[in-house]
């Protein structure tokens, strides 16, 4: 059952991820963004299978909920028609093709010769208490430093989005 669910979610993630960048039916950025939501939801399904319930919930709340809604707002403010009219150029096609071939080659070579440390069933410390304990002991400093990153980001966003009087 677990295995079947894994394949279902993994396939959903890959298919939706593909549809984000190359949707044969619609070229609208809104459709792309909505497929990104689906990708994230199926990713969180994978987290659930790893017993990382907190990460799964955060994945949905933060990415699908907050980040993507923002994305959609921004997209709605842009000129959607121009984006839809844009065709894929030959240069883009060739470049993208080359990258795809290189990535495919990497995916073929690397898994065959490489071994990750955790070769047995993955052990994910995904429960909320465990994560919280880590955040306030071992990773306290990075956790605090992130608050400074947020301050810098906030000051920057206010600064850059304000219209200058002149």
């Amino acid at each position: 059952m677990q295995d079947i669910l894994f394949y279902v979610f993994a396939a959903l993630t890959l298919v939706c991820g593909f549809l984000v960048v190359a949707n044969p039916i619609s070229r609208s950025p809104v459709t792309s963004a909505l497929f990104l939501v689906l990708t994230i939801v199926s990713l969180s399904g994978l987290f659930v299978l790893l017993h990382a319930f907190f990460l799964a919930a955060v994945q949905i709340v933060v990415y699908a909920g907050a980040a993507l809604v923002l994305f959609l707002f921004v997209i709605m403010m842009l000129d959607l028609k121009a984006e839809e009219r844009r065709r894929i150029t030959r240069l883009g096609l060739i470049g993208g093709g080359l990258v795809a071939v290189a990535m495919a080659w990497l995916f073929r070579v690397v898994p065959r010769e490489a071994a990750l440390v955790a070769s047995g069933p993955a052990h994910v410390e995904g429960s909320t208490p465990a994560l919280g304990a880590l955040l306030f002991t071992q990773y306290l400093l990075p956790f605090e430093a992130i608050s400074l990153v947020l301050v810098a980001g906030m000051v920057g966003a206010i600064l850059l989005s304000r219209k200058e009087p002149s």
Partner: peptide, 15 residues
Amino acid sequence: MIFVSLELTSLSLYV
């Protein structure tokens, strides 16, 4: 920690 502090530096410098 290296990554977080790198981001703190970079974000401030971008702005």
